[in-house]
Amino acid sequence: MNASISALPATHTAPSVSIQRLPTAAQLKQHLPLSDSLRQLVSRQRQAIRAILNGEDSRLLIVVGPCSIHDPVAALEYASHLAALSHELRDDMLLVMRAYIEKPRTTVGWKGLAYDPHLDGSDDMAHGLTLSRELMLEMLGMGLPIATELLQPMAAGYFDDLLGWVAIGARTTESQIHREMASGLGMPVGFKNGTDGGVAIACDAMRSAAHSHRHFGVDAEGHPAIIQTPGNPDTHLVLRGGHSGPNFDRNSVANARAGLEKNAIPARLMVDCSHANSGKDPLRQPDVFNDVLAQRLQGDHSLIGMMLESHLFEGCQPLSSTLRYGVSITDGCLGWDATEQLLRAAAAQLHAQRQAVQAIA
C-alpha cells in the first residue's frame, strides 16, 4: 500500500455533495408546451436565418438585446419595443431577441436567470428553468425569433424547441461536448472565435459540428443515453475580438474569411460589436456596428450580421438589493433609444442601396 495513503487518519472523509432533483425537460415542456402555431413560427424563423446564412436573403441578421436577462418585466418591455421595430424594419433586417439566461463566469458570480432567478444566491434552478421558458414563450408570442448562448448542455433540452439561433461562447467553442451538442441542434449556430482572437478553434468547431456524432447525453425523460446526431450544416463564425484587441476591421475580416475558405467552410461571418471589439465599452458598439455596415454596403456579403448588447437603459450596475430598472447587471449595454436610432439609420442605408440596385436592374 502507498505509504502516503496508509498514513491518512481513519476519520478522513470526502466532502458531502448535495443533490436535488429537477423536473425533466419533457416534464417542463409538457407543463409549458409550444403550441402548433408557435412551433410553425419557430420553423419559419429558423429557415429565414438559414436563408440569410446561405445568401438567399439579402437582409442583415441582427442579434440584439440584454447581455443577460435578470428582470422579466424589463425584458418583456424591451421585447415589445424590439418586436415593433422588427416589423418596421423587416424588409432590410431580421431582428433576433437576445434571451440569455445563462452566463459564463471566469471564477464565481451570478450565473444567470436559469440558475438564480431570485438574485439572492438561493439557486432556485427549478423556478429559473420555468421562468426562462415562460419568458421565451411570451417573446415568441410577440413574433420575435429567440437567441441564447447554450452554456450547460444539460439545460439545452429545456429550451431547444423555442430557439431560432444559438451561440457557442469563446470559452466553450473548444469544448468537444459543445461541438457534439451543436451537431444535434435543429437551428443555426454561431461559434465565437477563441479568447485569443484567432479563428482556428472556431473553424475546428464548425467542422466538428457539421459531422454526425454519437455521444453520452441525457434524454428528455432524464435518463442517461447514447445520443446520435445528424450533424449541423448551419453554423457560422462570430468575431468578438480577443486578448490582442478587436477583429472587426477589414483586414481581420479578410483574414477570417481566408481561414474559413482554407478549411472549406462557407464564408459567413457575424461580428459581435461588444466584448473585445468594443474594448468592453458599450457606448463604442455603434462605431463597430457602422464600420461593419460600411464593409457590407461596399460589397462584403460574407458579413451576414451583427450582435449588439442593448437594454432599456445604457450601462451596467452591480448586483444589489436596490437595482435600477432596465439596467444590465452583467456587461454594460447600449440604451434602447441609441439602439433604435442605430438600427433605423442602418436600415435606411440598406434600403437605399437595395433600391439603387433594383433601379439598375
Rank of each mutant, 00 (worst) to 15 (best):
Y158C: 01
S208Y: 08
A156R: 12
A220D: 12
R207S: 11
L119S: 02
A155G: 05
A209E: 07
L113Q: 09
R207A: 12
M154F: 14
L113M: 11
G184I: 03
D204T: 04
G143H: 04
T172E: 03
A167S: 12
P117R: 13
A182S: 13
T130S: 12
A209M: 04
P117K: 13
L150V: 14
H211M: 13
M139P: 01
L119G: 01
A170I: 05
L119C: 01
L113I: 13
L163H: 05
A200F: 11
L185Q: 08
M187N: 10
K192G: 01
G190P: 09
H118E: 03
L162D: 04
E180M: 09
A126H: 14
G184L: 07
G222K: 06
G141E: 05
D161H: 03
R171F: 03
A202V: 03
L119Q: 01
G194N: 11
H211Y: 07
L131P: 06
A170T: 07
R133I: 01
G184D: 00
D160I: 02
H178F: 06
A155V: 14
D160M: 05
M125A: 13
G194E: 05
E180Q: 15
L113A: 09
G128W: 09
M206N: 09
A156H: 06
G128V: 03
D161F: 04
T195F: 05
T172N: 12
G194F: 10
H127T: 14
D123L: 14
N193G: 02
G217R: 06
L144N: 01
D204P: 00
S183Q: 10
A200S: 13
G128R: 07
I201K: 10
D219S: 03
A155W: 03
E134G: 06
P153A: 04
E221R: 15
S122K: 13
R207E: 06
E138P: 02
M142C: 00
T173A: 15
A155S: 14
Q152V: 12
L137R: 11
F216R: 13
Q176H: 11
T148R: 07
H211R: 15
S122V: 02
G194Q: 07
T130W: 09
M181P: 00
L162F: 06
G186W: 00
L144Y: 05
C203M: 04
D124F: 07
D116F: 03
I168W: 06
G112H: 07
M181L: 15
G121E: 03
T173N: 08
P153W: 12
D124N: 14
D204K: 11
A167F: 08
E221Y: 13
D161P: 00
A170M: 10
Y158G: 02
D219R: 03
D219M: 00
N193Q: 09
Q152W: 15
W165M: 00
S175W: 08
